[in-house]
Amino acid sequence: MSRIASAFASAREENRAAVIPYLTAGYPDPERYLQISREMLEQADLLEIGLPYSDPLGDGPTIQSSGDAALKKGIFTAQVIELVRELRQSTDKPLLLMTYINPVIAYGSQRFFANFAAAGLDGVILPDLPPDEDPELVKEARAAGLDTVFLLAPTSTDERIKTVTSYISGFVYTVSVTGVTGARDQLPDLGPLVERIRRYTDKPVAIGFGISGAETARQAARVADGVVVGSALIREIQAGRNPAALLAEIRAAARVE
């Protein structure tokens, strides 16, 4: 069983959804990033690492600003590989990279996947790649030993769900809204979407885009296997607060009653 599958299984045994924080690699600076990530991993089941990118079309202003700050500090692909390597030395929990496809291609896809896998990465989330548009690239990631994760949305048709899930080996990343990332006060009813996804795959389903705190985490945990939170944690960092405290609240709220 992979680290990713094991993490979801362990959370399920504890009657809760898996908790998946997102942090932009190297933000606010490499040293603080490593410190915050290690604190997050005490509460998290998996960690999503965002590769800073100049044109993050799926990210809202909070994550965009953290990516811009990281890029200005020189955090590019090579530096993120080293951050993954350092994190792996202090945890056995799953580490996933969220990256847009351009950095993968610019670096060289086979080298990209191989170098990240060697550093200790478990999987890649590719939000802007329709997997059926480049099956060979998906095969390259798998050949390097990385699980692949793709996104589905409330607008996804059954045909699209069937197609996309056939390329997923980690978990299904379900976005709560047809928009960009960002904390929200309420989530729409995602139960019907999750039910449709489960007709086509037995992989865990995680909900992201909109988890802001305990209440939205509770809503997501009622229907899904995992909750992804990013913007709300980065806002805590920007405000000079410890995001681990918010993540602890989210973990407690993710318990299935």
Rank of each mutant, 00 (worst) to 15 (best):
180 V>R: 15
78 A>H: 06
139 K>C: 02
78 A>S: 14
130 P>C: 05
21 P>V: 09
216 T>K: 12
181 T>D: 10
167 Y>E: 03
24 T>F: 06
16 R>P: 02
114 A>W: 00
53 Y>S: 06
205 V>W: 11
112 F>A: 08
131 P>G: 04
244 A>E: 08
206 A>M: 08
154 P>C: 06
54 S>Q: 12
195 E>T: 12
154 P>M: 11
54 S>E: 09
134 D>R: 14
40 M>R: 01
1 M>I: 09
177 V>K: 13
167 Y>M: 08
68 D>M: 14
127 P>L: 10
219 Q>R: 15
184 R>Q: 13
67 G>A: 05
187 L>Y: 09
110 Q>H: 03
118 A>K: 15
25 A>L: 06
39 E>A: 15
202 D>Y: 04
24 T>L: 10
58 G>E: 06
65 S>I: 04
108 G>F: 01
129 L>E: 04
247 L>K: 10
84 V>T: 11
253 A>H: 09
132 D>W: 07
235 R>P: 00
97 L>K: 00
1 M>R: 13
200 Y>T: 04
177 V>T: 08
227 V>I: 13
30 P>S: 04
5 A>D: 10
218 R>F: 00
39 E>I: 00
114 A>T: 09
88 R>F: 02
1 M>Q: 11
226 G>F: 07
88 R>W: 05
166 S>Y: 01
94 P>G: 03
202 D>N: 14
57 L>M: 15
182 G>D: 09
248 A>N: 05
119 A>K: 11
226 G>W: 08
6 S>M: 11
190 L>N: 06
40 M>P: 00
207 I>G: 07
115 N>A: 10
79 Q>I: 03
245 A>K: 13
107 Y>C: 12
67 G>Q: 15
53 Y>A: 03
92 D>Y: 04
133 E>Q: 13
46 L>H: 01
100 Y>P: 01
95 L>K: 02
45 D>C: 07
66 S>P: 02
71 L>N: 00
211 I>M: 12
188 P>I: 09
69 A>F: 05
190 L>E: 06
117 A>R: 15
100 Y>L: 10
55 D>S: 11
32 R>P: 00
16 R>Q: 12
164 V>P: 06
132 D>E: 14
2 S>V: 00
91 T>Q: 07
8 F>M: 12
15 N>H: 11
252 A>F: 00
44 A>Q: 02
58 G>T: 12
232 A>D: 05
225 D>G: 05
172 V>S: 11
217 A>K: 03
240 G>A: 07
163 T>V: 14
156 S>R: 10
134 D>V: 01
40 M>W: 10
225 D>Q: 07
66 S>M: 05
189 D>F: 05
235 R>S: 10
51 L>H: 05
153 A>Y: 10
76 F>Q: 14
221 A>Q: 04
183 A>S: 14
181 T>Q: 12
236 E>C: 10
256 V>K: 15
